[in-house]
Design a protein around this nucleic acid. Structure first.
Length: 518
RNA sequence: GGCAGCGUAGCUCAGUGGUAGAGCAGGGGAAUCAUAAUCCCUUGGUCGGGGGUUCAAAUCCCUCCGCUGCUACCA
C-alpha cells in the first residue's frame, strides 16, 4: 500500500491465433507510453497485457497442428510474450485466459450474474456459419439454386438450434445510456462515443453467452455442457489480473478498480463499451474509467492483409529502423485515434528530420562544445538573460502540457509540444552562438551551454516514456543520476562541475541501403 | 436506406464569424559548434461546387458532388 494514486492500464488480450504484427505493437506501445508516463509522474501503475486463448478457432488450429489446445496455446502465447520484450514494454503482468486464476474469476463472475438474475437459459436458433463462427440474419444471406444459404463472407450457413444461456443485455439499455451521459470521457475519441451511443439508443437484445458446439473454453458452472461465450471469458481478464473475485479492502481490486483504462482497437470497441460495462454493472461492479479506441494502420497506402503479403512484422521494423525510432514514429505520425498510413518514406523522414537532425544533433552540438571548451564538466552559469529564461520557461512548461495531452491519449500532441522546445533550443544556440562567445566572452558561453543542458535535461526526462532507451543515453550524457529521472526531479537542476562523458550520437541518420523494389 | 463525420498549399493536417496557417517537399540566403546537421527569408491555396444569412464565412444555414465510419454477437 502506498499513498500514490493508482493507475491501471490494459492492452486487449491478443488472440493467439494471430501472428503479432504492427497493429499489436501499436496498441501495446501506446499503453507502455501511458504506463511509463504515469510511473514517472508518481502514480502506482499496474500495466497488464496478455493473450486470449479460448474459442473454436484455436481448437481447430490445435487439431490441425496435431497437438492438444493447451500445448498449442502455450506455444503461440509465447509469441506475444516475446513481443513485449522486443518492444521494451514495461508491463507488470501477462495474463492468459487458460490460467487457473482466470477460470476461477470468470466462473465467479458467472455465478454472481446468475444469482442476480441476469442470466437465464433459453435457446438460440439461426443461420450459423462454422467457418465464420457467427450467426447471420435471414436478410443477410444469399441463397443459391440448390437452396443453400451463404453468408456475405461467402461461407455456407446451416440452420442451428441450440440451448444457450442469455445475458439480459436488453435490460441495460437505459442504464448504459445514463452511464455514458454521466461519463463523457468514458469512450474516446468522441466520434467513437457517438457511434456507441447511437448503437445503444437503437435498443439492445439479450446476448447469448454460452455455446455447446465446441469444448475449448471455460465451462459454465453447474452445466458443463456449455462453454462460456468468448467475450464474457475474455473481458473478465481485466479484473482477474487484479485478483477478482477478491474485492475487499486491501486487495489489488480495491486499489486499482474502477480507475482502469482499456486501450483497444476500433474493431473491438463495442465489446468494451457496451457488453463489458453491462456485465460489470449486472454483477454489482463498477465499469472502468476509460476505453480508448485507436485506429488502424495501412501500409504504403494499402490495407494490411495476409493475402497482399504486406503485413508488417514488428521485428523487421526494429531491425531496420531501431526500437525507439519505431516507437516514436508510431506515436508521432498520426493523431492517436485516427487511422493512418505506415510508409517507409515517412518513417525515414521523421527519423532523420526530427530525431537525428532536430534532437540528436542538438545534443551533439552543445555537448561537444562543452567537451572541448569547458573541461568536460557541467559549465557554471552566470546571470540569465531574457533569452535564457525564455528557453528554460518553455522547457518548464512542458510537464503541464504533457499531462493534459496524455490525459486524453493525445500522444502526437505531446510529442509535438516536446519538439517545439527542441526547435526553440536549436534557434537559441544559433542566436547565442557559443562557438563565437568562446573567444569574446567565455563566461557567457558557459551560461549558454548550461541553459541548453538544462533545457535538454528536462526534455529528455519528459521524452522517456516514448523512447526509454535513447533518453537514458541522453540523460547519461548529461550525467543525470538514475534516481533523478522522474518528474519529481524535474526541478533538480544540473550541478555545475559534474563531469560529463564524451558525447555520443543518440539518433543516427537512417541511410537507405540499395535494395530491390520490395 | 438511416445516423455520424470528412473534403483547406504538391503531401499530411491545424484553424469553427473579423484581412488564409504549420510541418514536410520546392526556391534563395546566413552561419560553420554539430550526425552535410542548424538558422533566416521565400514560392505556393478563388479553404469540394452552387446558393443563402451577416457589416463580415474556411468558420452558420440549404443544396449538390466525392470519400469514410457505424447500422449486434465477424478478435
Amino acid at each position: 500500500m502506498s499513498g500514490r494514486p493508482p493507475f491501471y492500464i490494459t492492452t486487449p488480450i491478443y488472440y493467439v491465433n494471430d501472428v503479432p504484427h504492427i497493429g499489436h505493437a501499436y496498441t501495446t506501445i501506446a499503453c507502455d507510453v501511458m504506463a511509463r508516463f504515469k510511473r514517472l509522474d508518481g502514480f502506482d501503475v499496474k500495466f497488464l497485457t496478455g493473450t486470449d486463448e479460448h474459442g473454436q478457432k484455436v481448437e481447430k488450429s490445435a487439431k490441425a497442428a496435431g497437438i492438444d489446445p493447451q500445448a498449442f496455446t502455450d506455444k503461440v502465447s509465447q509469441n506475444f510474450r516475446d513481443l513485449t520484450g522486443l518492444l521494451n514494454i514495461s508491463n507488470d503482468d501477462f495474463i492468459r485466459t487458460t490460467e487457473p486464476r482466470h477460470v476461477t474469476s470468470v466462473q465467479a463472475l458467472w455465478r454472481t450474474l446468475v444469482e442476480n438474475g441476469e442470466i437465464y437459459l433459453g435457446s438460440y436458433a439461426g443461420w450459423y456459419s462454422v467457418r465464420d463462427e457467427a450467426y447471420y440474419g435471414e436478410d443477410e444471406l444469399r441463397t443459391d439454386d440448390q437452396g443453400r444459404k451463404f453468408a456475405p463472407t461467402g461461407a455456407e450457413c446451416e440452420w442451428v438450434e441450440e440451448l444457450s444461456y442469455f445475458f439480459r443485455l436488453s435490460a441495460w439499455t437505459d442504464r448504459l445510456l445514463a452511464f455514458y451521459e454521466a461519463n463523457p470521457s468514458f469512450i474516446l475519441p468522441p466520434g467513437k462515443r457517438n457511434e456507441v451511443m447511437s448503437f445503444v439508443k437503437g435498443g439492445l437484445k439479450d446476448l447469448s453467452v454460452s455455446r455447446t458446439t465446441f469444448d475449448w473454453g471455460i465451462p459454465v458452472p453447474g452445466d458443463e455442457k456449455h462453454i462460456m461465450y468468448v467475450w464474457l471469458d475474455a473481458l473478465t481478464n481485466y479484473i482477474t489480473a487484479i485478483g477478482y473475485p477478491e474485492t475487499g479492502e486491501g486487495t489489488p481490486y480495491a486499489q486499482y478498480w474502477p480507475g482502469a483504462m482499456h486501450m483497444v482497437g476500433k474493431d473491438i470497441l463495442r465489446f468494451h463499451t457496451v457488453y463489458w460495462p453491462a456485465f460489470l454493472m449486472a454483477a454489482g461492479l463498477q465499469p472502468p474509467t476509460r476505453v480508448f479506441a485507436h485506429g488502424w494502420w495501412t501500409v504504403e497506402g494499402e490495407k494490411m492483409s495476409k493475402s497482399l503479403g504486406n503485413v508488417v512484422a514488428p521485428a523487421e521494423l526494429l531491425e531496420k529502423y531501431g526500437l525507439d525510432q519505431t516507437r516514436y514514429f508510431l506515436m508521432r505520425e498520426i493523431p492517436f485515434g485516427n487511422d493512418g498510413d505506415f510508409s517507409r518514406r515517412a518513417m525515414v523522414t521523421r527519423i532523420n528530420s526530427e530525431l537525428a537532425n532536430g534532437y540528436g544533433n542538438l545534443a551533439q552540438r552543445f555537448l561537444s562544445i562543452i567537451q572541448k571548451n569547458c573541461g568536460a564538466v557541467v559549465p557554471t552559469p552566470g546571470p540569465f538573460t531574457e533569452a535564457d529564461n525564455a528557453l528554460l520557461d518553455a522547457a518548464r512548461g512542458l510537464l503541464a502540457t504533457l499531462r493534459a495531452e496524455l490525459d486524453v491519449q493525445a500522444f502526437h500532441k505531446a510529442l509535438d509540444a516536446l519538439w517545439v522546445v527542441v526547435g526553440d533550443a536549436n534557434r537559441y544556440i544559433d542566436e547565442q552562438a557559443p562557438w563565437a562567445l568562446k573567444k569574446t566572452d567565455p563566461a557567457r558561453m558557459a551560461t549558454v551551454l548550461y541553459v541548453l543542458a538544462e533545457a535538454v535535461r528536462r526534455v529528455a526526462i519528459l521524452t522517456q516514456p516514448f523512447m526509454p532507451g535513447a533518453m537514458a543515453k541522453v540523460l547519461d550524457l548529461l550525467a543525470v543520476p538514475e534516481d533523478a529521472r522522474d518528474f519529481a526531479h524535474l526541478d533538480q537542476a544540473l550541478v555545475p562541475g559534474t563531469p560529463l562523458p564524451p558525447p555520443q550520437g543518440v539518433f543516427p541518420r537512417h541511410v537507405e541501403e540499395a535494395e530491390g523494389a520490395a
